[in-house]
Design a protein around this nucleic acid. Structure first.
Length: 477
RNA sequence: GGCGGCGUACCCAAGUGGCAAGGGAGAGGUCUGCAAAACCUUUAUUCAGCGGUUCGAAUCCGCUCGCCGCCUCCA
C-alpha cells in the first residue's frame, strides 16, 4: 500500500491469507498469465517453506463481456466457453508446475454474495441503481485512488471513459449490469442482470478470507482500475482496511513492449511449450525479479535451457561420483565448498526474504554448482567427501523444491528435451549406436568412433566418454 | 498532460551507502585418442549523462537524456 517494500507481518501471526486474481476464461492463456501464476505460486511455496500456514484463493471469472462475446461468436452458451478455457488453463498451469490454490471460486457460484454486497453498498449510500444497472459512486469515497495514486480530478479530466450521461460521474463503475437481449442473467433486486467485473473479488475474498487479509496479488495492469475499484467497494462496505500488502507482478515484454492480447504480440503457453521444455519456461520466469519487466525471446529461453542443463549435468556428475568414489579418505580441496555450504541457506533466505528475489537465489545455486564441481575436480574420495557431496545435492534439491524447479532426474530431463526437440531416435537405437562405437574405440578405430559421434551430434545428441562407459545427453541450447 | 517504473560488460541479470553475484557468448589454458562436461585465466577502475550530499554512492538528492507501463479491456 505504501508503494515500498515493507517488513512482512501477517494480520494473524503464522497465518497468511492471500487472494490472487486468476483469469477470465474467454481464451487460451499467454505467457503473461503464466508469469503471474508462477510468481504467486513461488510466493506461496516460499511462505509455506518458512512455516506460514497459507490460505491461497485464486478466482476464475466465468462471466463477463468477453466471455459472452466469444460464446455468441461460437454460438454456444457462456458456460461452455468458461469451462473450456478453465480446463485449458489448468492444463497449462500443471505443465508449468503451478500448484492449485486452496480455493478456486467461480464468479457465477457467488451471485448471491455479490448481490448482498451490492445491496449493502446501496444501503450505505455508496452506490445507486439506474435502470437496472447499479453503479458505485466514486465521489462518496474520499480515499478513492489511494492504491494507484491517482486523484479524482485528474481522472475526470483525463477520462477517456465512454460517457454514460446518466452516471453521476464518468468514474462511477458498474457493480451490476442489466442484461441485454440474449445475454445470460440472474435475478436481482434491480432486475435481470449480471455482476460487474470488480464485485466478484470483493464478495469472494471476504467470504473465504474475511474483510481484511494479508496479500492481494495480480498483474500490474490490474492496479487500475480493477484493484482500485475492488478496494473501494470492499472498504466502503466493511469500513475496514481491505488488504495489508498488495503484490503486483511486472509484464512480459516483446521488443520492449508489453505482451498483451490487444497488441497481438503474445505467445500462448501452449505454443511456447511446443518449442521449450516446461521447466525452461518456469526457470526463465524466475530469472528476473517479479516486479521487473522481462523480455521474452528465443535467446532468453535458450539461455534458460543451458542453465538448467548445467544443473542436471552436475547432478549426473554427483551421482557418478557417489557410485564410484573409493573408500580411501582423500579430502580434496573442500574448504570453499564447506564455506559455501555453511552459508548457503542463509543466503537463499536473505534473497527470498527480500521481496522474493528468485534471480539472486538462482545465482547462489550456480555458485554452489561451481564449488561442488571444483571439489569433484580435485578428485576426492572416501566417506567424508561423499558426505559433503550428499549434503550439497540435498541442499540443491531442497531449494529446487521450494522454487519447484530442478526436480527431475537427469534422465527425465534429457528424455523431455528429446521430445521437445523432436529428436527422431529411440533410446534403443541410441544405445545400439553407442555400443557400436565402443567396439570401434576398443579397436582404436578412431575414425569410426568419431563418425558415430558426429552422426549423433547431427541429431542433437552429445556423447560423453567416461571411464568405462559412454553417456549420452541431448544438446541443450 | 497526471502518476509510476527502468537505464549495470557483447547479451541477459542480481546488487539499493563500504572494494561490481550468477548465466550465456568470446579468447587462452588444464583434462581427453579426439571430444564433451568440468575447472582455471581473461572480457565493467566502473554502474545512461551532469551536478550535489557523504570519510565513502551503481546505491541517497537534483537536473538532463533515452526507454517502458498505467490513466480504456488487459496477468
Amino acid at each position: 500500500m505504501s508503494g515500498k517494500k515493507e517488513d512482512f507481518a501477517p494480520l494473524v501471526p503464522g497465518k497468511v491469507r492471500m487472494y490472487v486474481c486468476g483469469i477470465t476464461a474467454y481464451d487460451v492463456c499467454h505467457l503473461g498469465h503464466a508469469r503471474s501464476a508462477v510468481v504467486f505460486d513461488i510466493i506461496k511455496r516460499y511462505l509455506r517453506y518458512k512455516g506460514f500456514e497459507v490460505t491461497h484463493v485464486r478466482n476464475i471469472t466465468d462471466i463477463d463481456d468477453k466471455i459472452i462475446a466469444r460464446a455468441a461468436k461460437e454460438n454456444v452458451t457462456y458456460d461452455v466457453i468458461a469451462k473450456k478455457y478453465t480446463d485449458e488453463y489448468y492444463r497449462d498451469m500443471e505443465m508449468l508446475g503451478v500448484g492449485r490454490a486452496d480455493l478456486e471460486p467461480n464468479a457465477t457460484d457467488h451471485i448471491r454474495e455479490m448481490i448482498k454486497t451490492i445491496q449493502g453498498l446501496i444501503d450505505k449510500g455508496f452506490a445507486y441503481s439506474l435502470n437496472g444497472d447499479v453503479y458505485f459512486e466514486v465521489g462518496k469515497l474520499r480515499e478513492y485512488g489511494k492504491l494507484s495514486k491517482k486523484n479524482i480530478e485528474d481522472l475526470v479530466s483525463g477520462a477517456r471513459v465512454e460517457v454514460n450521461e446518466r452516471k453521476r460521474s464518468p468514474l462511477d463503475f458498474a457493480l451490476w449490469k442489466a442484461s441485454k437481449e440474449g445475454e445470460p442473467w440472474w435475478e436481482s433486486p434491480w432486475g435481470k442482470g449480471r455482476p460487474g467485473w470488480h464485485i466478484e473479488c470483493t464478495a469472494m475474498s471476504s467470504k473465504y478470507l474475511g474483510d481484511s487479509f494479508d496479500i492481494h496479488g495480480g498483474g500490474a495492469d490490474l492496479i487500475f482500475p480493477h484493484h482500485e475499484n475492488e478496494m473501494a467497494q470492499s472498504e466502503a462496505y466493511t469500513g475496514k482496511p481491505f488488504v495489508k500488502y498488495w503484490v503486483h507482478n511486472g509484464f512480459i515484454t516483446v521488443d520492449k513492449e508489453k505482451m498483451s492480447k490487444s497488441l497481438g504480440n503474445f505467445f500462448t503457453i501452449k505454443e511456447i511449450l511446443e518449442k521449450y521444455e516446461p521447466e525452461v519456461v518456469r526457470y526463465f520466469l524466475l530469472t528476473a525479479h517479479y516486479r521487473s519487466p522481462i523480455e521474452f525471446s528465443d535467446v532468453q529461453l535458450t539461455e534458460a535451457e543451458l542453465s538448467i542443463d548445467r544443473y542436471y549435468s552436475t547432478v549426473t556428475r554427483i551421482k557418478d561420483f557417489l557410485e564410484t568414489a573409493g573408500t580411501t579418505e582423500k579430502p580434496g580441496t573442500s574448504a570453499d565448498l564447506e564455506k559455501l555450504l555453511a552459508a548457503f541457506k542463509d543466503k537463499f533466505h536473505h534473497a527470498m526474504n527480500d521481496d522474493f528475489n528468485t534471480a539472486s537465489s538462482l545465482g547462489f545455486i550456480f555458485e554452489l554448482i561451481r564449488e561442488v564441481n571444483r571439489f569433484l575436480d580435485s578428485k576426492p574420495s572416501g566417506n567424508n567427501a561423499k558426505e559433503l557431496v550428499i549434503k550439497t545435492s540435498e541442499l540443491l534439491a531442497g531449494i529446487g523444491g521450494v522454487l519447484n524447479i530442478f526436480n527431475k532426474t537427469p534422465e527425465e530431463w534429457y528424455r523431455s528435451l528429446m521430445k521437445v526437440k523432436k529428436i527422431e531416435l529411440s533410446e534403443e537405437e541410441l544405445l545400439q549406436k553407442i555400443a557400436q562405437r565402443q567396439e570401434a574405440r576398443k579397436a582404436k578405430d578412431w575414425a569410426c568412433a568419431d563418425a558415430v559421434r558426429k552422426e549423433l551430434e547431427a541429431k542433437g545428441i552429445i556423447l560423453e566418454d567416461k571411464k568405462d562407459v559412454t553417456a549420452w545427453k541431448v544438446k541443450a541450447g
